[in-house]
């Protein structure tokens, strides 16, 4: 059987809210190392990779590897019924066709359980190599959210260029043009308000703003976000989910025809 308990149930609520518009369905792959998900959006332009480690849960048991096919809209409906302070336990028998979600209020005086029907989903698993990137930028997730939101109101695509001057986001549209530059800045006392730019070589890539904007729905999960860029390769937008794991979004660059 599979059983995973997390005291901070709001993390699961935030995760599903971050993913549900991008990916309608996907497999939760569970094993004794944890829970993972790899899913593409419907247009196959971006990929979401979620990894939650076994030791990040308050309790985790998985006797046999399973792929649980989840409809994220339906999972979201159920998780909306959990309180923000609730402990959430996920449970499934081996080869089950349903996932049980149990919500416990902190005071222990309210316990509810919901069964989510599982789906059978054929999905190809993509091998994502570990690699070095030309530029890695860590910035406040709220700053990333603001930049992509602001630029989305001006244009459809953004040119992201990383140089020793900083990281520049440029777009243009019917209204005109916009450029936002962030510089390496470790002045703020709080580490989560700092901007770190690790540049190996200058790089410039163009991306669809619609997707970058959608990734920012993960903002409530982490105070910082990491952007990784290499020429001709997908951008990686990564949110660390505390000690539990991470969610990474990969978006293919736009290339000249």
């Amino acid at each position: 059987m599979f059983e995973a308990r997390i005291t901070q149930g709001s993390v699961l609520k935030k995760l599903v809210e971050a993913l549900k518009e991008l990916v309608t369905e996907g497999n939760f792959d569970v094993s004794n190392t944890g829970l993972s998900l790899q899913a593409m959006d419907s247009s196959h332009v971006c990929l979401v990779s979620l990894t939650l480690r076994e030791d990040g849960f308050d309790h985790f048991r998985c006797d046999r590897n399973m792929a649980m096919g989840i409809h994220f809209g339906n999972l979201s409906k159920i998780l909306k019924c959990a309180g923000n302070e609730d402990t959430i336990t996920l449970k499934a028998e081996d080869n089950a066709d349903q996932l049980t979600l149990m919500f416990e209020a902190p005071s222990q005086d309210r316990i509810s359980d919901f069964d989510l029907k599982l789906m059978s989903i054929e999905s190809e698993h993509l091998g994502i190599p570990d690699q070095d990137y030309s530029a890695e930028v860590k910035l406040p997730s709220s700053e990333y959210q603001r930049i992509v939101r602001d630029l989305t109101s001006i244009g459809d695509t953004v040119l992201i260029s990383a140089t020793k001057e900083g990281i520049k986001f440029s777009t243009s549209g019917d209204v005109g043009t916009a450029n936002i530059t962030l510089r390496h800045n470790t002045t703020p006392e709080k580490p989560e308000e700092q901007t770190f730019i690790d540049l190996k070589e200058p790089v410039a890539l163009t991306f669809a703003l619609r997707y970058l904007n959608n990734f920012s729905k993960a903002t409530p999960l982490a105070p910082q976000v990491k952007l990784s860029l290499t020429k001709d390769l997908p951008i990686v937008v990564e949110y660390q989910v505390g000690e539990l794991g991470s969610v990474r979004f990969y978006l293919a660059p736009k290339i000249d025809d």
Partner: peptide, 14 residues
Amino acid sequence: QTKQRSISAFFKTS
């Protein structure tokens, strides 16, 4: 003109 490739073109199927 720019075009958009599928994300799966960048990673190997395993």
